[in-house]
Amino acid sequence: MAAARIERLVTSGTFSLDGGTWEVDNNVWIVGDDREAVVVDAAHDADAIVRALGGRVLRAIVCTHAHNDHIDAAPDLAARTGAPILLHPDDLPLWKQTHPDRMPDGELADGQTLTVAGARLTVLHTPGHAPGAVCLYAPDLTALFSGDTLFAGGPGATGRSYSHFPTIIDSIREKLLTLPDDTVVHTGHGEATVVGAEAPHLQTWIDRGF
Rank of each mutant, 00 (worst) to 15 (best):
R56W: 01
G55A: 08
T11E: 01
A43F: 06
H186W: 12
A157R: 14
G111A: 05
D140H: 03
H164W: 15
V38P: 02
D91M: 10
C135R: 07
T167Q: 10
E191Y: 15
L94Y: 08
I168T: 09
A3M: 15
S16H: 11
L202P: 13
G153T: 05
T81M: 05
P200H: 12
D105M: 03
F210H: 15
A197G: 14
G156N: 13
L92T: 11
A42I: 03
K175S: 10
P89L: 03
P89W: 03
H70N: 15
V195T: 11
Q112E: 06
H164Q: 02
A2H: 15
R51K: 15
A192S: 14
D101M: 11
W22I: 13
V116D: 03
G106I: 01
A42Q: 01
A43D: 11
V123Y: 00
V134S: 11
A133D: 14
L121I: 09
L144E: 02
V185R: 06
G209Y: 09
Q97S: 08
G106W: 12
F210N: 11
D18T: 10
R5V: 12
S163Q: 12
Y137V: 02
E7C: 09
D91Q: 04
D182W: 15
A130Q: 02
G20R: 15
A130S: 14
D33M: 08
V50Q: 03
G82K: 01
E7N: 15
H186F: 12
T149Q: 03
I30M: 12
G154H: 13
L179A: 13
G128W: 09
L17F: 11
D47K: 13
T81Q: 09
D18I: 06
S16Y: 03
P84W: 00
V134M: 03
T11R: 09
D148T: 00
D45I: 00
L144F: 07
T204V: 10
G188D: 02
R80Q: 10
T21E: 11
G111Q: 09
P89Y: 03
S163F: 04
F151I: 02
N26R: 12
L94I: 02
I6R: 12
V38L: 09
E36Q: 15
R173G: 00
P180Q: 04
D76C: 01
D25C: 07
N26F: 05
R208C: 05
A48F: 12
H189D: 05
Y162G: 08
R51M: 04
F165L: 06
A37M: 06
D181A: 10
V194P: 07
I71S: 09
L136V: 07
L108D: 00
E7I: 05
T178G: 05
R173C: 04
P131D: 12
R102G: 05
T11N: 07
D45A: 12
G190Q: 01
T158M: 10
T126I: 07
V50F: 00
V123L: 07
